[in-house]
Amino acid sequence: MLSQQLVNGLVLGSTYALFALGFTLIFGVLRVINLTYGFYFSIGAFVALTAARSFGANIWVALPLGAIAAGLVAVVADWILLTRLRRAKAGELSSLMVTLGAVLALYSLMAVFIGTDIQRFPFGFVDNSAIEFSGIRISLVQMLIIGTTLVLVALLFVLLQRTKLGLMIRALAENEDAARLMGINVGLTVAAVSFLSGMLGGAAGVLIGLNFNAIQPFMGEHMMLRGFAVIIIGGLGDIRGALIAGVLLGVLEVLTAGYISSNAKEAVAFTILVLTLWFRPVGLFGRAQAKRA
């Protein structure tokens, strides 16, 4: 049973990590806790769902569609909400507040139009069979989630470390004014980062929606609370930290529910979060100044 529980934890943790990647990327580069991120997650899932329903798109079409749509929404949202504040150098709190208001409006607007009933991808959209070996069961969708998370982390590293865009993004993360002086097109780089993080959020929405069969407008909000915990524990802006913190949190939650009490499961994330804030606010893996993207 322990091995099955560890697999459960790994799967759950991967969903947390997958969700947190784009969230922490935005902070790492743009220094903004962008709460509209939760909406990218919801909209990604809904676009994929609509594609699957209206023209029978399969997962390999629906997934990129959801991701790209969320990426575009992210670019527009960032442009409307944050350009002005960035120009005025208004600081973290103003950005936090403006995205907080925006995300509430966006979720609620979505709820008004499509209702809050949960929905699911059509039966048979993906092969939902499970593989069993030595008493451990894992479904194909769950393996897809773990695989996608690892691939995306690897791709992000390559992108940031080995490409010209990556160099521009890292320069922007280091210091906006210096980046501008070096001739980097800051507006374009910001848009690229928004698009990337939106895509990550959208892809997470599709896969997690597929796994849990509970797609509804506020799904991003429920995920957000775990997202906060993961990016703080992993260190704000730290992609590798988010991966490790996500998996760690998932495993701890499952083990708590499995071996201590399911009543305590809800409290795990926030207990670790508060402890981190007290004793190690730069995150478990952070340096004194977590500046890495």
Binding site: I33, G91, E92, L93, L96, L225, F228, A229, I232, N263, A264, E266, A267, F270, T271, L273, V274, L277, W278, P281
Partner: peptide, 28 residues
């Protein structure tokens, strides 16, 4: 006590966490 020495974002997040922790407490 601990969070106010950090940037304002940390207070905002830890107060969100406070609300959740209390909710779990009231329920249990």
């Amino acid at each position: 006590g601990p969070t106010l020495r950090l940037s304002g974002v940390y207070l905002a997040i830890s107060t969100i966490a406070l609300g959740e922790v209390l909710r779990v407490l009231y329920i249990n």
